[in-house]
Design a protein around this nucleic acid. Structure first.
Lengths: 192, 192
DNA sequence: CCATTTGTATACTCAGATGTAAATAAAAGC
DNA sequence: GCTTTTATTTACATCTGAGTATACAAATGG
């Protein structure tokens, strides 16, 4: 009597489940990074058993790389090779809003995990290079150009994360303000 | 014949050894954070066996807290409650130069480790509050004040790390430029 | 010279996490 | 209905790393 009729449990197709696992894994890993997150944490976040994870991924490392790969791909698709055009910052904001956990995971954790740095290195190296090229006409090569071209991508990323933390107010205004903040760094690197 | 006379190995006093272990642990943990660093890594970095570590620290966690505590104390001693006076940035630079590994460890790793966030939380909360107070007369309360007061401490820290990475050129000029970069963020948060 | 301190070597226990295997059950699709 | 796919459960096997115990060796300091 007290026994409820078990509601028919909706099963997912393989590809769908895989995506759902990647979503959950992104959330789980975003909390504390690779080493401090167990597969049981991921499984719990996905609402399944650990065993299922192994039907979709060879190993923990394999899964993590898949998570980072997806986040990276999404980011590159949204931002594109749109190096410093006016749409770069708005599209960065869109990308972060679309996948905030992935965004945080990439830049706050993966970038500091030596074992997986290769996945974010291309991204950061590319953005540093873009910054350096855009700085070149205005700042003579040397330590301050180095300083600024390292700092600018970081400030861009951290501005976006601060925007997420502040509740994502008005994306258009945010883009302008972030642009202004970056401009401030460029000014600061100017010879005086 | 071939046997060398073993050079008499200089032994350290207890306190001295403890400091040396803390130095080595700071370097080791600065590479990949708490979870991804084993006690064997630390012992190897210190040039001793793992067993010795337990003569100075109760546990891995205990040791890590001691490392963070020391880095934190040093930082506070150097920077002081010198909230936004003109000497704040120069002293931040001095502190980072004096203990670069500790500096990186605190802000790049410990700040992202939920288990140890309490140790850096007071620091970051304090600096965010200082930023907010200094912003108050110029920026109306609201999401952009939130945004800027979160971002400013981060930009300060990241500017310093970028300065370390760029080879620590001219500390005085660096202080001015970092001040200018922060000013740029304040400008960016201004109502428009 | 003798006690204390400091370091080494080795071997062990224990816990947690990764990864595997097999039997069972239920949903989906034909 | 019958097969295939997907999920659960339970039970292992294995490994790494934390933490402990003990016996030994060498330096220090009186």
């Amino acid at each position: 009597m007290t026994a409820q009729q078990a509601a028919p449990v909706r099963r997912m197709r393989r590809a769908e489940r895989r995506e759902q696992i990647l979503d959950a894994a992104t959330r789980a890993f975003a909390r504390a990074g690779f080493a401090a997150t167990s597969l049981d944490d991921v499984a719990a976040e996905a609402g399944i058993t650990r065993v299922i994870l192994y039907r979709h991924f060879e190993s923990k490392t394999d899964m993590y790389r898949a998570v980072l790969d997806r986040a990276c791909t999404r980011l590159v698709e949204q931002v594109g090779a749109d190096d410093f055009g006016g749409e770069a910052i708005p599209s960065l904001l869109r990308a972060a809003a679309a996948d905030p956990d992935g965004f945080r995971l990439l830049f706050r954790h993966a970038a500091r995990e030596p074992e997986f740095r290769d996945l974010t290195d291309t991204l950061t190296a590319a953005s540093v290079e873009i910054a350096r090229k855009n700085l070149a006409p205005r700042i003579p090569p040397g330590p301050w150009a180095d300083w600024a071209s390292r700092l600018i991508p970081t400030v861009a990323i951290e501005s976006v994360i601060a925007w997420l933390d502040a509740g994502r107010p008005d994306p258009d205004a945010a883009a302008e303000r972030i642009g202004a903040a970056i401009h401030g760094v460029i000014q600061a690197a100017q010879p005086r």
